[in-house]
């Protein structure tokens, strides 16, 4: 474990917590893409499938984190599609998730480290996570604005994988550890946030709201 991965995971936890708090406190999921949250839930379940296969005996931090990620993302989907369904902005959350899931699944079957079920599920999860934020960014471009709290959520969510890139550089240099698939997907994922990062740093930090077109 290094400082970059630690802060990356903390940033990821913060993002999940910020979104849950926003929906719970405002009792509304306006401005939140349910599809993105569904895709994240699929990512966690397919990536941590080992939790379900081998009974989780020893509870170490990593297993607890995996359980938190899975339960929090499923609970967030429950809030969006059931509890606060009336506030879900289905009209603007209109990016076709199939256009993200099918290519990720196809690519996972073509480009992977080992052609076995668990490894392909892990690879699918990595590829899907890289593009999972697109419905959320699409929704913001359709509505033309993002609530400040949603911007903080996106900043934490984007920062998590950006910090992982620093973690991978660190591990390459000190541990000669390379996980090419995760690195390439992580770079793509972080690039997708660049436009938002620019808006966040030039606007939200100054107390303004993000309104598109910028």
């Amino acid at each position: 474990m290094n400082i970059f991965r630690l802060f990356g995971d903390l940033s990821h936890l913060a993002a999940i917590a910020i979104l849950l708090l926003k929906i719970w406190k405002t009792r509304s999921c306006a401005g939140v893409s349910g599809k993105t949250q569904l895709l994240f839930a699929v990512c966690f379940i397919t990536r941590y499938i080992d939790l379900f296969l081998h009974f989780v005996s020893l509870y170490n931090t990593e297993k607890v984190m995996k359980l938190i990620y899975i339960s929090a993302s499923v609970f967030t989907c429950y809030l969006i599609f059931f509890k606060f369904k009336a506030t879900y902005d289905g009209n603007h959350d209109s990016m076709r998730a199939e256009f993200l899931i099918v290519p990720a699944a196809g690519l996972a079957c073509l480009i992977n480290t080992k052609f076995d079920a668990i490894e392909i599920l892990w690879t699918f999860s990595i590829y899907l996570e890289a593009v999972a934020i697109l419905p959320q960014l699409f929704l913001i471009s359709k509505t033309g604005e993002a609530e400040t709290i949603t911007s903080h959520y996106l900043f934490a969510q984007g920062s998590y994988r950006a910090l992982y890139i620093l973690n991978w550089i660190y591990r390459y240099h000190y541990e000669s550890h390379v996980d090419t698939i995760a690195i390439v997907a992580g770079v793509v994922q972080t690039i997708l946030y660049c436009d938002f990062f620019y808006l966040y740093i030039t606007k939200v930090v100054k107390g303004q709201k993000i309104v598109l077109p910028a």
């Binding site: 995971d9 480290t113 892990w122 992982y164 390459y172 000669s176 550890h177 996980d179 090419t180």
Partner: peptide, 10 residues
């Protein structure tokens, strides 16, 4: 660079 077979990251 050794390929990490077991993915040890979240």
């Amino acid at each position: 660079s050794n390929k990490s077979l077991a993915h040890d990251e979240l």
